[in-house]
């Protein structure tokens, strides 16, 4: 599904690269935690997968295709197959929960009758049935993140990238979001989640990829947040 081969990303020549010679393969249906201190290159790795950035050297492949070589006009199609959620939710304050989800469908050209059917379904799926007409400031942090997850899911992406999705949430709410991502993964969506939340990583016991100063220092199946002693 995702393959990175000797990927290096430098933002300014002369400084330490944000990612340094990373090789990594993630197969379809996997759940992968991306851990490491701030500045270790987790977000850069996610940005490369979204084609927000291109690698300085090396190859990033998604579904067998070199992401960097996708023509600009085809990049939107890539992004419809790669959903993403962020620590700060990135919702539109002047749209309701349903409006935020519908926005993602409207701007990708989905017909109105599909939007009307799919939006309540997906909101129900993420546990927000009955809260479709609430505005973001009328929802809790966890509920806002669920709206963001619903928005990422409406395009039925093959991969869901989550950049610190529980970073702004209390532990219990964070665990709720974690369970939601687990459920999404169980129905076949590949999930790559960058996080600092040691408790969640330790509880889930999934594959852990650890970065430090832009280099891959650990790739462990069923790992914890800290490497085993």
């Amino acid at each position: 599904m995702i393959r990175m081969t000797s990927v290096t990303k430098s933002y300014h020549s002369g400084t330490r690269p944000a990612l340094d010679d990373i090789s990594l393969e993630i197969t379809a249906g996997e759940f992968v935690f991306l851990v490491g201190p701030s500045g270790s290159g987790k977000s850069t790795l996610l940005r490369l997968l979204l084609r927000e950035e291109r690698p300085t050297s090396g190859v990033v492949e998604f579904a067998g295709r070199d992401v960097a070589s996708i023509p600009d006009r085809r990049v939107p199609l890539l992004r419809r197959q790669v959903g993403c959620v962020f620590q700060d939710f990135r919702l539109l304050a002047d749209r309701t929960a349903a409006g935020n989800v519908a926005f993602a469908m409207d701007v990708t050209g989905r017909p109105r009758h599909v939007v009307r059917t799919v939006v309540p379904e997906v909101l129900g799926l993420v546990g927000l049935a009955g809260k479709e007409n609430r505005y973001p400031d009328e929802l809790s942090g966890g509920e806002q993140q669920r709206v963001a997850v619903a928005r990422a899911l409406v395009a039925r992406p093959q991969v869901l990238l989550a950049d610190e999705p529980t970073g702004n949430l209390d532990p219990a709410t964070g665990a709720g979001i974690m369970n939601l991502l687990g459920a999404i993964n169980r129905v076949g969506t590949t999930v790559v989640m960058a996080t600092h939340n040691a408790a969640l990583v330790d509880t889930m016991r999934r594959r852990v990829v650890e970065l430090e100063h832009g280099t891959l220092v650990r790739d462990q199946a069923s790992g914890g947040y800290e490497p085993a002693p």
């Binding site: 979204l50 600009d72 006009r73 939107p76 199609l77 890539l78 992004r79 419809r80 993403c84 990135r90 539109l92 926005f103 993602a104 701007v107 990708t108 928005r151 990422a152 395009a155």
Partner: peptide
Amino acid sequence: AIMRLVGATN
């Protein structure tokens, strides 16, 4: 920014 992320065309 959201439009770009969800795959809206230019």
